[in-house]
Design a protein around this nucleic acid. Sequence first.
DNA 1: CGCGACGTTGATTTGCCTCAACGATTGTGG
DNA 2: CCACAATCGTTGAGGCAAATCAACGTCGCG
Lengths: 191, 191
Amino acid sequence: MHPSIISHLKQYINLTEHDLQLFQSCLNSISVDKGKFLLQPGTQVKHEYFVLKGCLKAYYLDEKGHSHIIQFAIENWWIGDFDTFFNGIPSRLHIETIEHSTLLSINYNTLQQLFKTAPIFERYFRLLTTNAFISQRKRILSSLEKDTKERYVEFCESYPNIEDRIPDYDIANYLGVSAERLSRIRSKLKR
Amino acid sequence: MHPSIISHLKQYINLTEHDLQLFQSCLNSISVDKGKFLLQPGTQVKHEYFVLKGCLKAYYLDEKGHSHIIQFAIENWWIGDFDTFFNGIPSRLHIETIEHSTLLSINYNTLQQLFKTAPIFERYFRLLTTNAFISQRKRILSSLEKDTKERYVEFCESYPNIEDRIPDYDIANYLGVSAERLSRIRSKLKR
DNA sequence: CGCGACGTTGATTTGCCTCAACGATTGTGG
DNA sequence: CCACAATCGTTGAGGCAAATCAACGTCGCG
């Protein structure tokens, strides 16, 4: 098993060697080229993904065909679609790689089984969900109380050099402004 | 124990009579007058609240003193501050009643103890967190892809007559627009 | 009654979108 | 290895949505 997922687990829960073995047996490793899709709408594929290496985005398309990025993921992040798992309806989410990426995947049926065998993982996923919840709350709050310039700076500070790995138009999309607007904001910041 | 919390529990998990007894022993009932605070920043009070009757709002104040409503809660909703519990720092959240309210409260230390005794409640709170996560994701998506009029209609449809229980300026605040703007949108909708 | 809380309406200003054109860079096929 | 297209970021102009400031109407209540 890759050390980064182990240290991620240990950050949240205490594990026996046996628990680790169990968890390992639930994981599959996959490799995805840049610009390829991990998930597309309409499918019932029920996986969550842990990023070993690479960069991805998750987004929805609205009726007008406009995309809305809900999340980026880089190393040591989980990415996936909670909706699909919990209510069983087909996903509306797109997950696409921004860089060539290597990932660990876990199937949700397998995960349900794991929860029964080793309830400690129920805690791990509760804590993951809680963190995701908190970071979404921060995003909502940020959009309510800050202007776009502040939110862009905040975004860049959230992960080192993340703005060099993600194209500007994707960042603009995530922030909910046009690419032109972000460009003007960036040129103001340089001065 | 109040029937509404029991049926809420049963919506998510299967319970023995003994589990129910256990859970009941963790709850306290409280009553709060209109306009009073359940939680104010700086305190370490670690409770989550289940609404039996009434209406509340949770909000943050920014440096400029502007409030930003993060959540409303009515009957059969949980309200609280996950942040405070999970990282131990004092809460920055205000929770205030919009109507006179009766609530059940659960202390988080008690809850941690309960998780150890009866892991099934770990699942209950994981599912609650997941639902909260999903509804926040909807809110983010909604603010990215819809205009204010659509978001107001969506808000009103989310709970029957909720717009009659919450003052317009609070709804405007939640939607991230000025009260004047919402007023104009409402007058357009009437026609 | 008078005051405060709440909603409405008008006028001005500002942030941002959209459309459009144009550099810079990268990749690709002849 | 060059030519050309595609991708990406920048810049300008015009228009709309929404903020802000201000004034006013209405209702409920001490």
